[in-house]
Design a protein around this nucleic acid. Structure first.
Lengths: 136, 136
DNA sequence: TGTACTGTAATAAAAATAATTACAGAATGA
DNA sequence: TCATTCTGTAATTATTTTTATTACAGTACA
């Protein structure tokens, strides 16, 4: 992960949780996170697609949590934003003529899926409500 | 992780293990991985720094494992190559005037260090020898 | 003493990420 | 009704990260 989608999404969700159902504009969210509002809206699109938030268009519009914070766990959030292999991947095909190169991706795959599923299991122990509780 | 340092390093180590102590050139390694030899040498520098491999300069030179494959575990390899936060990080400072923005990095830090230590624990259960054993 | 390596740096290219800009469409309320 | 303030979305540009390329000094061998 060399992008900021997870922390940005978690930040958005935390702010929305804090707003207790009132509508929050992408402008405000962007101001807290310190990124561009259009990026926030894009990330919100994704969170909406995954059922975490809902938005209302038009004047006075904004976003709000679509479910209880206790029903959103961080494993789900991770799954919603992940778009690359957890431990990275070589973009080039390894040499198929090399006995090791030929097989390595297959073994990396099993390693990664194992590692990732325990990671998700671990993340899933914590809900957005748990996370938000840490803020004073 | 959006770079390929972990898979590249593991690939190198697997090849060296397969070579059973004979010297392997960066040219050969690069050919199997399908990346540039200079990158391989750079990655080997790092692996050497961490005590996993040794190299011999000059004609007929190359690299070889510096310790038994059973004494290299994948958690150590991960630690040797990791250079970014496991779940990504927003490069911009969150707004210190926002009650959430002000605190979020601190809470992300504890989350990340927790998540990462279980990830490493998990990876550490597997040695290079275990990994290499999967190749037929 | 030529050859084949590593070590290392500098530079360039490519890819990924983020920022910016723009604007149509929706909801509000004066 | 219509100006205002939002979202949704796309297109473009800028920035950063990653990878490739090139080059060459130094080392070891034969």
């Amino acid at each position: 992960m060399n992008n900021s989608r997870f922390p940005v999404s978690l930040h958005i969700l935390t702010l929305l949780n804090d707003a207790k159902g009132t509508l929050v504009s992408s402008e405000y969210l962007a101001g807290s996170i310190n990124i561009n509002p259009a990026l926030v809206r894009k990330e919100i699109m994704n969170l909406r697609k995954h059922g975490f938030v809902n938005s209302k268009e038009g004047k006075g519009g904004g976003s709000f949590l679509a479910k209880n914070a206790a029903d959103i766990n961080l494993g789900e959030v991770y799954k919603a934003v992940k778009n690359s292999d957890i431990l990275g991947r070589n973009k080039n095909e390894p040499n198929p003529k090399c006995p090791i190169g030929k097989q390595i991706n297959q073994h990396l795959n099993t390693l990664y899926s194992d590692v990732e599923s325990t990671l998700i299991m671990n993340l899933s122990k914590q809900t957005l409500a748990d996370f938000a509780l840490k803020f004073k």
